[in-house]
Amino acid sequence: MWYAHQPARRTRQIIGDGAALLWTAGWAVTAAVAHRLFTAAAPHPQPRLPLLGPRMNGTLHDVARAGDRLADAAPAGAGPAQLLALVAAGALFAVPVGLLLVLWLPRRLRWVRQAAAARDLAATEDGRELLALRALLRPLDEVGRTADALPDSTPGSLAEGWREGDPATLDALAAAELVRLGLRAA
């Protein structure tokens, strides 16, 4: 189960997934264009950096020579400019897409796991009780809204109904938890 049953939540999930795909594709295109621009640029001679002084200038050239040695270790046919272009394009793609994956993917996968577990729990008697308990453990304002949705019900009566195993209360609480996840109550 990858998407919610509720249309509003499903729409938000589809838009989020589409935005993630567009973000990834956009950075892939940007990296490819940057790679072509880097490889098309002619190599420039190492200029002298007058504002930094001779000591810093020498240090920067040492770093550049170390980079040249790394480039020389590259496969034949790949010059230093091509290697640098490849590394720069790879970083240009990996950093923003990696950030997206770190922020978006765990949250999305957590919802998928929770929805699948809730769907499986809703199919069993014991699972229905667990869903009902989870609904009772929500913040008090959410429990209050659940109680308001049921006739002649208060948060305290919901807890009492859960303790006594009242089927109507258990069904109502389990349904509230499924709805919170964006699923249809069975």
Rank of each mutant, 00 (worst) to 15 (best):
Y3N: 04
A4H: 01
P7G: 03
R12I: 05
I14D: 02
G16F: 10
D17M: 11
G18C: 09
L21T: 07
W23E: 10
T24V: 12
A25R: 01
A25S: 12
A28L: 15
V33D: 13
H35S: 01
H35P: 00
A40C: 10
A41G: 12
H44W: 04
P47S: 08
R48I: 09
L49Q: 09
L51E: 14
M56Q: 12
G58R: 15
L60A: 09
V63A: 14
G67P: 00
A71M: 11
D72V: 00
D72M: 08
A73W: 13
A73I: 07
P75E: 09
P75S: 08
A78E: 13
G79F: 06
A81D: 15
A81T: 15
Q82K: 10
A88W: 07
A88H: 03
G90W: 07
A91G: 15
L92Y: 01
L92E: 04
A94Q: 08
A94F: 14
V95Y: 05
V97G: 07
V102Y: 09
V102T: 13
R107N: 08
R108G: 01
L109M: 13
V112E: 08
Q114N: 10
A115G: 09
A116N: 14
A118Q: 03
L121E: 15
A122S: 15
A123Y: 07
A123H: 14
L131D: 06
L133E: 11
R134P: 00
L136A: 02
R138T: 07
P139F: 03
L140T: 06
E142P: 02
G144R: 13
R145W: 11
R145K: 14
T146R: 00
P151C: 05
P155K: 04
S157V: 00
L158Y: 06
A159Q: 14
W162V: 01
D166K: 05
D166A: 14
P167N: 06
A168P: 00
L170W: 02
D171V: 00
A172D: 05
A172P: 03
L178M: 14
V179T: 14
R180V: 02
L183V: 04
R184T: 15
